[in-house]
Amino acid sequence: MNLFNPPKQVKGVYIRFGENPFVLLSLFFRQAKNQNWSQQEITHVLDKAKKGNYAHLVKTLKAHIHH
Rank of each mutant, 00 (worst) to 15 (best):
67 H>K: 11
38 S>D: 08
59 K>T: 13
40 Q>E: 15
47 D>K: 15
66 H>I: 12
38 S>G: 10
50 K>Q: 15
11 K>A: 04
25 L>R: 09
55 A>F: 13
50 K>P: 04
20 N>Q: 10
37 W>T: 06
14 Y>A: 11
54 Y>L: 04
37 W>D: 08
28 F>S: 04
29 F>S: 10
61 L>C: 07
55 A>T: 15
41 E>M: 05
18 G>K: 05
39 Q>R: 07
21 P>T: 09
12 G>E: 05
34 N>M: 08
29 F>W: 10
6 P>L: 01
51 K>M: 12
36 N>Q: 12
46 L>M: 15
37 W>M: 01
36 N>T: 03
9 Q>A: 13
52 G>F: 08
39 Q>I: 10
64 H>M: 02
60 T>L: 03
45 V>L: 02
1 M>T: 11
7 P>S: 10
1 M>N: 13
39 Q>N: 10
49 A>H: 08
20 N>V: 15
42 I>Q: 12
8 K>C: 01
23 V>K: 08
51 K>G: 15
37 W>V: 00
21 P>K: 06
10 V>Y: 01
36 N>E: 11
19 E>G: 11
47 D>A: 06
43 T>C: 06
11 K>C: 02
35 Q>E: 14
8 K>V: 08
30 R>Q: 14
8 K>D: 02
21 P>A: 11
46 L>D: 01
37 W>Q: 08
8 K>R: 12
20 N>L: 11
64 H>F: 01
53 N>F: 09
33 K>W: 04
54 Y>I: 03
15 I>K: 03
12 G>D: 09
59 K>N: 15
8 K>G: 03
57 L>A: 12
17 F>D: 15
20 N>K: 14
23 V>M: 10
34 N>Y: 01
63 A>W: 01
3 L>M: 12
57 L>C: 07
24 L>G: 12
46 L>P: 08
57 L>P: 03
38 S>L: 02
35 Q>A: 05
46 L>K: 08
49 A>K: 10
53 N>L: 09
4 F>S: 09
13 V>C: 06
9 Q>M: 12
45 V>E: 00
7 P>A: 04
17 F>K: 15
6 P>D: 11
39 Q>C: 00
67 H>C: 02
14 Y>S: 13
45 V>F: 08
57 L>Y: 14
13 V>K: 00
2 N>H: 04
2 N>Q: 06
14 Y>D: 10
10 V>S: 04
8 K>Q: 10
58 V>A: 12
57 L>S: 12
58 V>K: 00
38 S>N: 06
63 A>K: 01
12 G>N: 07
55 A>W: 07
62 K>M: 15
52 G>Y: 06
58 V>L: 09
43 T>A: 14
28 F>P: 04
9 Q>P: 00
15 I>N: 07
17 F>Q: 13
60 T>W: 04
47 D>C: 09
7 P>T: 05
36 N>M: 02
1 M>V: 05
7 P>K: 04
37 W>K: 06
3 L>V: 05
65 I>L: 07
5 N>D: 14
31 Q>W: 01
21 P>W: 14
33 K>V: 07
23 V>E: 07
39 Q>W: 05
10 V>H: 03
54 Y>Q: 07
